[in-house]
Amino acid sequence: MEVINIKGTDDTPNVILDKASGQFEISGRSLPEDVNMFFEKILDWIDEYSQDPNDRTEFNFKLEYFNTASSKVILDILLKFEEIVENGKEVVIKWHYHEDEEDMLEAGEEYSDIVEIPFDYIVYND
């Protein structure tokens, strides 16, 4: 499968999606004005991945900030992985948050209330 490797900007996140090496990561900040335009390619990639996913997928979210329009797209991404879980594969969401940022932890907890995927919360402090 094609590898997605997008470098972040001051309003879009870094994205790495690599089936072969098992790297799945969205990090940085996400506040684009047009979320659909930015995430379309990513959602399409995940749709294709879900046709033949790895036995275990570890998806890292290490976001510093995202706007509410992005929060909706993140849910869409998680729902796609929930389907992969329903189809019998293992998925773990690694949700990273800064120790000063309870809001980011809470955002992760809210997602885990909505989707049936196990979440690991990882605190960092750099």
């Binding site: 329009a69 849910l75 909505i114």
Partner: peptide, 15 residues
């Protein structure tokens, strides 16, 4: 967030 869709304006009504 479950019910919303991204509008033409790109908002999700969550702000």
């Amino acid at each position: 967030i479950k019910e919303s869709t991204i509008s033409d304006k790109g908002g999700a009504g969550l702000g």
